[in-house]
């Protein structure tokens, strides 16, 4: 597994946990107080900030962890080269394409909910949900292409 694949696995795991956290808290809020503006905004902010922090920390930890493993395996002290070559860029592009499709679908569904009389808070909740799903789908698409080929 290349360093890029390891990074994708870590990002996928983080965003899956984040999605789970978001869904659990959103459903709990909806069942107790309904669509409460303050609670939803707090949930969005938490998801966005945690997402950013987790990706940064995850990237750093993946880099450190993979270099430690590389040093143990090869007995060399120099870091594993973090090269992003043409294949990595192509797979990243195709992953972004898959994520874009999911996010576009999410925006469409969010707009539909608004058209059918749901409040604006529901629309924005759906957009946040699909943005998390898009990231996950993009990561899965990249991993599949790394395994099966481009």
């Amino acid at each position: 597994m290349s360093s890029r694949e390891k990074h994708i696995v870590v990002t996928l795991a983080c965003f899956s946990l984040l999605l789970g956290y978001y869904l659990v808290n959103w459903i709990r809020m909806y069942q107790t107080v309904g669509l409460d503006q303050t609670t939803i905004f707090r949930l969005w902010a938490t998801v966005i900030i945690v997402g950013i922090v987790v990706v940064i920390v995850g990237t750093i930890l993946t880099y450190i962890g993979s270099n430690v493993v590389h040093a143990i395996k090869t007995g060399r002290e120099e870091a594993e080269p973090m090269v992003e070559d043409e294949r990595d860029k192509l797979i990243e592009l195709k992953g972004e394409y898959a994520a874009y499709i999911v996010f576009s679908l999410g925006v469409f569904i969010a707009m539909l909910s608004f058209v059918f009389g749901q409040p604006a808070l529901m629309m924005f909740s759906l957009i946040v949900l699909f943005s998390l799903l898009a990231q996950i789908v993009g990561n899965i698409s990249e991993l599949v292409r790394y395994r099966k080929g481009v």
Binding site: P81, V83, D85, E86, R87, D88, Y146, G149, V150
Partner: peptide, 22 residues
């Protein structure tokens, strides 16, 4: 060639077609 070992492996396994330059 300036690529990763995994890319060379993918080319050999016919899982990836390299660019003309590569």
């Amino acid at each position: 060639t300036g690529v990763t070992r995994q890319t060379i492996n993918a080319i050999e396994s016919a899982k990836y077609s390299p660019s003309l330059e590569l």
